[in-house]
Nucleic acid binder design. Structure first.
Lengths: 206, 206, 206, 206
DNA sequence: GATGAATGAGCATTCATTCAT
DNA sequence: GATGAATGAATGCTCATTCAT
């Protein structure tokens, strides 16, 4: 399930040696091609399509990733890594409420570009994933800092679910037709976050 | 894409005549089988599975629905019809705000049972569908009645997108693991609707 | 592993009905094509080659035999059935020693035509197979009838192994070059059987 | 098919010069690895497996043996050389009949260890091979010495075919299950050789 | 010379759709 | 009209062989 290791290999004599330059290039090309192909066609893309986009043969693809699933996992992992770094930065803004809004904004911009990101988070809702854990930590800190500004009883799961929910809205608004309309989901983010304000003192359902 | 016509056919001489009774029965059986199969296996179900559940041959299935896609469209259409009647009733509650909350509650309960419903609505975001039109009418009325209770500038599209967004939350919380936990998405619905209240006078992004 | 059932199927309504005539024809064509292809190319034949020879599409082949292995098993089973009937008849000759020689002669003629037969028997040497059991019964009767003519201590396994051994000789003499030379292996059969005669009173290794 | 030449190469100027020491070492390692791999997995081994066992890269393997088939041929040739020396010794025993039995015993023990040996002999039945010639010489001498003890008309080909036939028996009795049971094939060897005794004066089929 | 990454034809198998019965 | 057998273009994956480093 986990992708192959970092760019290195083990020679027959047992020494660990870095991958050849062209191998590194190919590996990157494959992952990039997979990223694009997955976003366009979803998880059912033909591996040949990925190989073609990457400009490599089937064998090369399978040398780097022993199964299609491994390649997909690698793409998700890579995207998630970049994405989580970005949103962690956004969440570090001085003002607690701005931190919260920036977090959602950056997180959803990422989803707008790479639909697959949120799928990996969603998959972790029932079966805890490494991704969900990382996200949970960021959210916990946001919650702690914004504590006084939030309505009582808001939990990490509330924000996690809201994020996934909104990422779905982002996806909907991007479906072929009007690809660059961020207004629609920005409005919804504003509305949803306002619903979290301390103004609303009604207790949430348990 | 569009569902096939109502139960009727065109004879060689051009007269429209009703389908034979067994044909009607078969058609219904196929749609019902497809409903179950789609919910269990998603859009990738083997058409054989549907034919088997319906107790008909492949030929019969393809006589009624010239392509798998047509059958899926029909299932969605049928589900949407039932669902829209339910939510229309919920939206008719006397108190405007209760009407709004009941609308979301009923609409999302429907999604919880039939995952495919919202897909058809979502598909219509960019390419206007009959479904989206129906839904838009219901929402327009809700908006008109609750006008005074809502923050300024809330539009039909805001609620439509919110609904789709929340339906995604419903789906996430139902993924195998904790199948009957409605609390999680109920909390999110409450938060989101509170974000619509007139309390929030900030203008929404244009 | 076992091939699909006899030419019949279960309709959606649950009644068992015979296969259509063309389906029967196709099934037979597939088995026959597989017989030839297996004999020519061995177990590594491409299933496409079999389908091509049979004049059917891939799907048809897989409808009748859900896996390549099932098709191979069916071919072996069918060949073995015909073959075992033939050798059973040969083994029924009145004179006990003639019965023994006729048995080997017929059995090996069968192997000469269908190399795969003995493979299935050989496979059963370590893991008892239905084929080996049938063969064992025939041999047991031959042994009982020829008891007085045989050297002491000859067992069923001796004859079973001798048969397999000789079938290998048959195969060797048939390798492309001089396809129809039966003399070579006939001589070896004669020698081997003579080695079983009561003339040889030395005990066999235990 | 034919093994590559002895450890030497041709320089650009046309002089034949010995291989570098490490090249010799690699060549030997490859052949040894191939021997083990062929015995474990049969002729379908992945060449990568062989290269891995030998501790060399694919390029090195293919520099020494331009095709997989060539490597296999070399392994067979090497085994055959060792094997033929052993059986030549066994065939040199003073007593002619003991020479014959020792020959078969040693020859078949060799087959028991290296399944592939007899394949190369078998392949030469129709297309005369160097291997078959060597074997033929040994057998001719055995025949000459045991002339008076053998039934009339026994030829070199009879013994050659018997040897191949019995090697098949050895293989069968070794299939996973009861790996070390030599009794079964020893009995068959005894029976077969007794069939060659002068006791049997019936003429063999021509 | 040695290495192992790259190649791509080939393989078993699936499934939406057509059509003879 | 109904049936389900037939079709064949994909699909995920393997492996003998080549060639850049």
């Amino acid at each position: 399930m986990r992708p192959v290791d970092a760019p290195s290999g083990v020679s027959p004599r047992g020494e660990v040696r870095p991958l050849r330059r062209d191998a590194v290039r190919n590996r990157a090309a494959i992952v990039e091609a997979a990223r694009g192909a997955l976003d366009e066609h979803g998880g059912t893309v033909d591996v040949r399509e990925i190989a073609r986009r990457a400009g490599v043969g089937m064998g090369t693809l399978y040398r780097h990733f022993p199964a299609k699933e491994d390649l997909i996992a690698e793409v998700l992992h890579e995207q998630f890594t970049i994405w989580s770094a970005t949103i962690r930065t956004a969440a570090a803004t001085a003002d607690p409420w701005t931190a919260l809004t920036d977090f959602f904004d950056q997180a959803l911009r990422g989803c707008a570009k790479q639909h697959a990101i949120m799928d990996s988070v969603a998959a972790g809702w029932s079966r805890p994933s490494a991704e969900a854990v990382v996200l949970g930590e960021i959210i916990d800190e946001l919650l702690a800092r914004a504590a006084g500004l939030l309505r009582p009883g808001v939990t990490r799961d509330d924000l996690l679910l809201m994020l996934q929910s909104l990422s779905c809205a982002v996806r909907v608004t991007q479906q072929s037709g009007r690809p660059r309309d961020r207004t629609a989901w920005n409005r919804l983010v504003r509305i949803s976050l306002d619903g979290l304000r301390a103004t609303h003192s009604d207790p949430l359902p348990q």
